[in-house]
Nucleic acid binder design. Sequence first.
DNA 1: TATTGGATCGCC
DNA 2: GCGATCCAATAG
Length: 194
Amino acid sequence: MKLTRDFYQRPTLTVAEELLGKRLVRESTEGLTAGIIVETEAYVGPDDPGSHAYKGRRPFCETMYAEAGCAYIYLTRGRYHCFNAVTERADYPAVVLIRAIEPTDGLDLMARRRGLDQPKLLASGPSRLCIALGLSRELNGIDLTGDVLNVEDVGLKFDDIARSGRIGLTLGQEIPWRFFVQGNEFVSHFRKKD
DNA sequence: TATTGGATCGCC
DNA sequence: GCGATCCAATAG
């Protein structure tokens, strides 16, 4: 069952935790790809030092202020993308970054897009996931309650959910707003910083 | 217009 | 563990 807008219109930490175990579905002309979300991070409000909105509302992060249930997709490191789901209310910058999925459908298409075929490497990382699902900035702002990209509840519930600091940030990395499925092998690996 | 640094990845 | 790589934010 496809998640409706009210799922996203709740506190971001709640949405981040509850997105674990949901199925992310991407339909494209090349075919359908999907997977179970196993790792997320929350970026909440104008005072979160790790958020793009920290220095105020600017054009490049305008989508963070959109209505809940939209996709915020942006370019990072000059050539990679990250995919977030917008939460809470319009004009308030809050999103959930989807960091990893466990691929369930269209593995062959993901492998083609990624140029490798090890299931564990297909979508275990925010940019890997975008490549595997064919997500790019052209889809920024797209409605997650539509057909192109959406999330469904498949009745799956993980018992062992863990929290940690967020990955890869220079500011605000110590805030424990990363959620992941303990022991799941599709969760991305920690990267040691410095 | 020039500089700088990044919510990363892949390879060594 | 480390550096490639390149776009866009920011400063001047």
